[in-house]
Amino acid sequence: MSDQRKQVQRRREAAARRRDRDREAWRARNQASQERQERGVSRALRDRDVSLLDLVDRLLDGGVVIHGDITLAVADVDLVYVGLRALVASVETIERDAGVSLSASGPSLKASAL
């Protein structure tokens, strides 16, 4: 029993260290952001960057898809080619069997699932 407690304790400490790291990272990011604003890092540069990001989001992830097959990609590594119909059918099955609704606003569990 006490071994388990020790394990839990070690894990909590690891989590604490990780959270400290996250806080530090957040502080650093915030500070970097302030400095950029103060240095007046070119608004034009930031403008171009955000325009490019939004462009890529649209052209590569949006728009009408011409082929029925889609790719399941994880970090740009094409892993699985799936026929679109097959995928839609399996999504519906997941929804029905697990009582989950995978809507555009995010997954949610139906009350009956618990």
Binding site: L60, D61, H67
Partner: peptide, 10 residues
């Protein structure tokens, strides 16, 4: 128009 995804070709 309905824009197609970049790289769409047949």
């Amino acid at each position: 128009i309905l824009p197609l995804r970049f790289g769409s070709s047949v």
